[in-house]
């Protein structure tokens, strides 16, 4: 990465691991649980957050010196809401089918704590380029978790990935189903998302003992 200084590159790589928005910062949980029953939806959500967080971080950063401190939170909310509404309108006009998939998530993006969290923690105190990188980094960190959870939930819960039957056909009993394998329908249910994330946290902290909480 010749374009980015070492410090800048860290802005992108940190949220991928040591400062992951979901597993470390504890932000953005709601959407991580609600839409990860399907890998496709997880990907769409990750990309949307990438856009909103990237652009939003830049906008807030540019505005950071003129926002009155009393209504800081409200202003941030309005910026996010406006961006999301614009995305929704544009999609509805030019990619109607896609907008219907996204429509349900719009509300979830606005209240996604990651976006507000990064505005507060970073964009309000840094320049636009760095804020952009921070936004991208966190969105990717979020996206990675979403995709991992979505991957396991769809695979184990429905036997498909992105809609394609990868383990065989459960009705015709081909592939894995021929030897008696059954889909674990429970994986499609929301509580399992919580448990999968819990396990991911377990794995992450086992690999990096510095993250373990003191008792």
């Amino acid at each position: 990465m010749g374009l980015l200084s070492k410090k800048d590159a860290k802005l992108i790589t940190d949220p991928l691991t040591d400062n992951n928005p979901i597993t470390i910062q504890v932000l953005g949980i709601c959407s991580a649980l609600a839409i990860t029953a399907e890998l496709n939806a997880s990907i769409v959500m990750a990309v949307s957050v990438l856009f909103v967080l990237g652009v939003g971080n830049v906008v807030i950063s540019l505005m950071r010196n003129i926002i009155p401190s009393k209504i800081r939170i409200i202003v941030q909310l309005i910026v996010v809401a406006t961006l999301v509404i614009i995305v929704d309108l544009v999609l509805k006009a030019f990619a109607y089918e896609l907008s219907k998939t996204l429509g349900a998530f719009i509300g979830l993006i606005i209240t996604n704590c990651i976006i507000m969290g990064r505005f507060e923690a970073f964009a309000l105190g840094n320049g636009p380029w760095k804020s952009f990188l921070d936004g991208i980094g966190n969105a990717v960190g979020y996206g990675v978790i979403l995709i991992i959870v979505g991957f396991f939930r769809e695979l184990l819960g429905a036997g498909t990935l992105l809609g394609f039957k990868v383990l065989g056909d459960p009705i015709e009993k081909t592939g894995l189903y021929a030897i008696g394998y059954e889909n674990n329908g429970f994986m499609l249910l929301a509580p399992m998302a919580l448990i999968v994330v819990g396990i991911l946290i377990w794995v992450q902290r086992s690999r990096n003992p510095a993250l373990i909480e003191e008792n």
């Binding site: 504890v26 509580p191 399992m192 919580l194 819990g198 086992s206 373990i212």
Partner: peptide, 23 residues
Amino acid sequence: VPPALRGLGITFIITGLMAIGFM
């Protein structure tokens, strides 16, 4: 609680179990 699960990890799992209960 196993060290790597302490705090956040175990909370997620417990919440998951409670959610199952609430179902």
